[in-house]
């Protein structure tokens, strides 16, 4: 039997928020999963995002803090202007080193770190966006045996990022508004 998914890692850039907001109400505590969300955005939108997400979910929503331990049924948002990494003891580390793919936080950095720590128990979801951040991260998750889901480029506001991912590796499934139930089932199959 495959090990259950412990973490759903979500990366997105331009145009990704609407899909995220559509997805969140479908996530139920019985999935027993933690979410780590890395969205490219302006510094000034830091607290706004946590507030926006909070109204759409039964999960607790908070900005990920340095040295905080990851818990299930919680959505952790990467703060702006820091990379978010994960330690072997499942606690977060913040890092303000150079931008990666012109981005800080970088989706690649978080996905690669999660792959290193969680291996086959992490699933990466890459949403709409205008650059290629996240593609190497998905590759690392794939290599570690984790799950790969990509927003359907045809259903993305900005298809470039999910298309780059699909050019680089196969996805377990494509996500769009009409496949949300199937996505939850996909998570549940491995989460029970």
């Amino acid at each position: 039997m495959n090990p259950k998914y412990e973490v759903l890692a979500i990366g997105g850039s331009a145009g990704s928020l609407s899909m995220l907001l559509t997805l969140l109400p479908h996530l139920v505590p019985t999935l027993n999963i933690a979410l780590v969300v890395v969205l490219h955005r302006k510094d000034s939108e830091d607290n706004t995002l946590v507030d926006v997400l909070r109204h759409r979910t039964m999960f607790a929503v908070k900005e990920a803090e340095d040295k905080e331990t990851i818990e299930t049924n919680t959505i952790y948002v990467a703060p702006t202007d820091y990379h978010l990494l994960v330690e072997k003891d499942h606690s977060f580390s913040l890092d303000n080193s150079e931008k990666v793919n012109y981005s800080r936080p970088s989706i690649d950095v978080t996905f690669e770190s999660l792959a290193d720590v969680y291996g086959p128990t992490v699933v990466g979801l890459l949403l709409s966006g205008a650059n290629a951040d996240g593609v190497d991260g998905l590759k690392a998750i794939k290599k570690a045996g984790g799950g790969i889901v990509v927003q359907d480029p045809a259903a993305s506001v900005v298809p470039y990022m999910p298309q780059q991912a699909l050019n680089a590796l196969p996805a377990d499934m494509l996500l769009h508004e009409h496949s949300l139930e199937r996505f939850i089932q996909y998570l549940a199959d491995k989460s029970q």
Partner: peptide, 9 residues
């Protein structure tokens, strides 16, 4: 030092 960042560096 925190390993995740150090390993990446």
């Amino acid at each position: 030092y925190s390993r995740a960042s150090l390993k990446r560096r």
